[in-house]
Write a protein that binds this DNA or RNA. Structure first.
Length: 370
DNA sequence: ATTGCTGAAGGG
């Protein structure tokens, strides 16, 4: 089911190249959006955005008028972006602006984590590549993954890479839950695996970011099973066309799963019914497991207490940047240590403009008035 | 379309 590979990234999956597109796997993802892939990867380090046919003035003015959601052409936000934002908002912004900037060391650690996650996913299901040619097809594959996993969950099984999506605090969020299973007490538990380069538990700042991430997953998942994520909401936010016919590979994959659908809207309605009529519980427990990449040793486990008010307040604060209510902020001076391992430290405006100094001045001023 | 455009997470 939950597919990952695009055809164009087959080299990354070379280790698993012998896996069969078996019947197990009910559905999987994705297609060959080759033009997209080559667009983003061909600009190796050299931004084409410096070309400025309109001249700098106009462009600058336009950029100022746009919210970041508009400027980055976003219809939704990713949970992973919000959790990166929790680490350092300014760094997250640089990541969006200069995506090819990151160091190879960092990429290697991320890659190691990604391949461990892929191996675990493959323990539970195979992946199948499905050709997609429209955004409706891409969403259809996601919906088919949901449709294939709901019955497993309903019968007490374990699932990995469950797609979640829905409006929270006015913005459409999209993410993928690592694992859902039931505990011995019969509680539905979300399990998030975090692999680490060094064999030690993370600092508090890292844990806080991870807690925020899994808490967001719970918000979205719960909204989905409660029927609060409606077909109309998805269609509206993602600007999809329900009447559009699904591509042949998507239709045939749906058929293999027992769903006869022709249009995107039919599949969407079916998924909504499955989510809301299967009597799935909301998530009862949130668990994060930290493990050492090289030795696969568990370093420790954190149970997260879900505090809805705090999570929603924090989300609202983060969204303030995205919706243009406020400028991006870098880290506070207390957390300047984060800059030591940041790929953007050398070009960071927050640091250059003394954003941290400004903060301490503000704090100082506060003190004086007391 | 004076526009179009998006795999999420990956770890510190």
């Amino acid at each position: 089911m939950a597919g990952t590979g695009r055809e164009s990234s087959a080299d990354e999956n070379a280790d698993f190249g012998d896996l069969s597109d078996s019947e197990f796997l009910d559905f999987s993802e994705l297609g060959d959006i080759e033009d997209l892939g080559s667009q983003s990867s061909s600009s190796s380090g050299n931004p084409r955005k410096e070309v400025d046919p309109e001249g700098p003035w106009k462009r600058k003015r336009e950029a100022d008028a746009l919210t970041p959601m508009e400027r980055f052409h976003l219809r939704c936000l990713w949970v992973s972006d919000l959790s990166t934002q929790c680490w350092c908002e300014q760094q997250m912004v640089y990541g969006k602006e200069l995506p090819d900037f990151q160091s190879t060391e960092k990429a290697a650690v991320l890659g190691a984590g990604a391949s461990i996650h892929l191996a675990r996913e493959l323990e539970l299901h195979d992946l199948v590549n499905i050709h997609t040619s429209t955004k409706e097809d891409i969403w259809a594959v996601k919906l088919l993954n949901v449709l294939s996993m709901v019955p497993i969950l309903q019968s007490g099984g374990t699932i990995r890479e469950f797609p979640v999506f829905g409006e929270v605090e006015g913005v459409f969020l999209v993410g993928v839950i690592d694992e859902l299973h039931y505990t011995s007490k019969g509680e539905l538990e979300l399990a998030e695996l975090k692999t680490r380069k060094r064999p030690m538990m993370p600092l508090e700042a890292q844990k806080e970011k991870d807690r925020f991430q899994v808490s967001l997953y719970k918000c979205i998942f719960d909204a989905m099973v409660r029927g609060q994520v409606t077909p109309a909401s998805l269609v509206h936010h993602m600007k999809l066309s329900p009447e559009l016919l699904l591509g042949p590979q998507v239709q045939s994959h749906a058929q293999q799963g027992g769903f006869t659908v022709k249009s995107f809207g039919e599949l969407l309605e079916l998924t909504f019914l499955s989510l809301t009529l299967s009597d799935l519980p909301v998530i009862d427990a949130l668990k994060i497991e930290y493990s050492h990449q090289e030795t696969d040793t568990v370093l420790g486990t954190e149970m997260v207490v879900f505090e809805e008010k705090q999570v929603r307040d924090k989300l609202q604060h983060h969204l303030g940047y995205w919706t243009g209510l406020r400028e991006p902020h870098g880290v506070d001076v207390k957390e300047a240590w984060k800059c030591q391992m940041c790929d953007y430290a050398a070009i960071c405006e927050w640091r250059q403009n003394g954003g941290m100094r400004t903060l301490t001045q503000e704090e100082h001023a506060k003190k004086m008035t007391k």
